[in-house]
């Protein structure tokens, strides 16, 4: 249970800070002296945090589903031909900067959350796919051979042997992807998605360091909390499927 302590503390402090930031005017007046607009007020931080998490969560769910299925597909005998194609598509998703994806998506999908989600999914695919492939290909061939030789069907080999053994590596890929996307999601604010990037963008536009700081602190803390949450999940996974 001790592994869950750090993420719980971080999540609690994230929520508390989001709630209490508006009351911390003395601190921000020290950062931005002589200004009346010390606290970002267009939306509450909790609302922004919520919608930020929602964006990352949905994009991670879609990304994981797509990348893991693609990874499984191209490691099956019938899908092996598609391996180069799939890794290329995922690499392209990674090389195009998210800002460019946003810019390209806006004419097609309009402003708001949809193009942001699109960019996040695309951007998060590669780490998950790469780790899915590494995890599945890293399994000792003798283990797979004996699983098959014991009389497991291909589905049973996948569910009972391959995924549990590759799970930790896949999880690490999801962790990388989600952590990157927590930062990337903030850019969604430039095309009208409501995220913790809002105060940052507003602060940059108006030259208000206090706003920038408020957004940045929360984004950073969210990234830390998520990362330690994954750490705990990975450890629990490792204990359940000790290898």
């Amino acid at each position: 249970m001790r592994v869950w302590l750090a993420p719980l503390v971080l999540i609690a402090s994230l929520c508390l800070l989001a709630a209490w930031l508006p009351t911390m005017t003395p601190f921000f007046s020290w950062v931005e002296p002589g200004s009346d607009n010390l606290i970002y007020k267009r939306d509450s931080f909790l609302t922004l945090l919520q919608s930020h998490i929602w964006l990352v969560l949905v994009s991670a769910a879609i990304g994981t589903l797509v990348a893991v299925s693609a990874g499984i597909f191209v490691t099956r005998p019938f899908g092996r031909e598609f391996l180069p194609l799939v890794s290329q598509i995922a690499s392209i998703g990674q090389t195009v900067p998210p800002v460019a994806v946003l810019a390209l998506a806006v004419p097609l999908m309009g402003f708001g959350e949809k193009p942001t989600l699109f960019a996040l999914v695309l951007y998060g695919l590669l780490p998950i796919l790469r780790n899915t492939l590494a995890g599945l290909n890293g399994i000792n061939p003798a283990v797979l051979e004996s699983a098959k030789g014991m009389g497991m069907s291909s589905v049973q080999v996948l569910l009972k042997v391959e995924l549990p053994l590759a799970g930790r590596v896949i999880l690490a890929g999801i962790r990388t992807s989600v952590t990157i996307n927590i930062a990337t999601a903030a850019i969604g604010s430039t095309i009208g998605a409501r995220t913790l990037g809002d105060p940052v963008i507003a602060g940059l536009v108006n030259g208000n360091t206090a706003y920038v700081l408020q957004g940045a602190i929360l984004i950073g803390l969210l990234a830390l909390a998520t990362d330690s949450l994954f750490e705990a999940v990975e450890r629990t996974w490792a204990r359940a499927f000790s290898a």
């Binding site: 000792n140 003798a142 283990v143 004996s146 030789g149 549990p164 053994l165 499927f241 000790s242 290898a243």
Partner: peptide, 8 residues
Amino acid sequence: QSTGLFPH
């Protein structure tokens, strides 16, 4: 020979 025991 390599046993192929399931490590998990």
